[in-house]
């Protein structure tokens, strides 16, 4: 524990800017993954334990596309679309068969998918790690804002993820399909009774959720190593985000992801050997005060 260092950091603009932006980027990428988890849970009441696999596939598809096309934009797009499609196939052929089953059966199906696709990745891309490398457009020196170091690539990532958060939020509140999704989250039987094609609706929800995780994997690929099983590390944190934010709440996921990012950013200065512990303590405190999470509804 180094509270002096934390105090010095919090009173220095350079440190606040650097750590806050690093917390923001960690949080925003986490939000993309967690948004899918919470969206799927909100509508279908299914905890998608295979969500890390979408993140992993997004990264790998983007890596291959970049090698073929030399275009990072195409790489991100292909990673997102491929995982959206994978989401539809996953929902239609696997998870839809265990709707209404007990949670252990759902867990088993998801876990099987995780193991199978970890091995598929080993067969297709090899068991060793891959590094995508920074796109040439972002191979530029970092910016210095108020003395703090802010990389342009991370500004771009924060911008993209913020835009996605706004589009997702507006899409859910303003569009017809968004309203239907929200209605299905509250009362699926009524939505079905009103003649809405819930089969299509559920497939769309999985496509959006999977696509968001794939987008996160693709966006992060230039700076993170790609390896089989990489989805697991983000899965745990995305569940924490979902629980803290409130199961099913997109706004909650955003706030919780940013909280975790900032705790990581500043916790590493003041509590270098207890940063992970801080996150769990924060989760325990929030759940003690609000068992339904920050933005969750009481059941």
């Amino acid at each position: 524990m180094d509270l002096t260092a934390l105090g010095v950091c919090l009173t220095t603009s350079a440190c606040v800017v650097t750590q806050a932006t690093s917390g923001l980027i960690v949080g925003m990428l986490l939000f993309l993954v967690a948004a899918g988890v919470t969206l799927i849970f909100g509508v279908l009441k299914i905890v998608n334990f295979a969500h890390g696999t979408f993140y992993m596939l997004g990264g790998y598809v983007a890596y291959t596309t970049l090698n073929v096309t030399d275009s990072y934009a195409l790489a991100v797009l292909s990673g997102t679309l491929a995982t959206a499609l994978f989401g539809v196939l996953f929902e239609r052929f696997l998870i839809s068969r265990v709707y209404g089953s007990n949670v252990l059966m759902q867990l088993l199906v998801c876990y099987a998918v995780v193991l199978i696709f970890d091995d598929v990745v080993k067969i297709v891309w090899g068991p060793e790690f891959h590094a995508m490398g920074m796109p040439p457009a972002f191979q530029v020196p970092p910016l210095f804002i108020a003395g703090g170091v802010v990389p342009p690539f991370y500004i771009a990532l924060i911008g993209i993820t913020a835009l996605i958060a706004i589009v997702l939020s507006l899409g859910l509140s303003m569009t017809r399909i968004g309203k239907t999704v929200r209605a299905a989250a509250i009362n699926p039987q009524m939505v079905s009774a009103l003649g809405v094609n819930t089969t299509l609706l559920f497939a769309i929800v999985f496509a959006v959720g999977g696509g968001l995780a794939g987008l996160a994997g693709a966006l992060a690929a230039p700076v993170r190593s790609l390896s089989p099983g990489m989805g697991f590390s983000v899965l745990i944190e995305s569940f924490i985000v979902t629980v803290i934010g409130g199961m099913g709440s997109i706004a909650g996921a955003l706030v919780a992801a940013l909280l975790i990012g900032l705790v990581r950013g500043f916790g590493t200065i003041g509590f270098p050997q207890f940063t992970d512990g801080l996150i769990y303590i924060m989760m325990i405190i929030i759940l003690l005060l609000r068992p339904q999470g920050l933005f969750g509804r009481r059941s």
């Binding site: 690093s22 700076v223 990489m230 590390s233 990581r264």
Partner: peptide, 10 residues
Amino acid sequence: QPDFTEVITK
């Protein structure tokens, strides 16, 4: 660990 950002900034 997938992300070293906070370590690097520290």
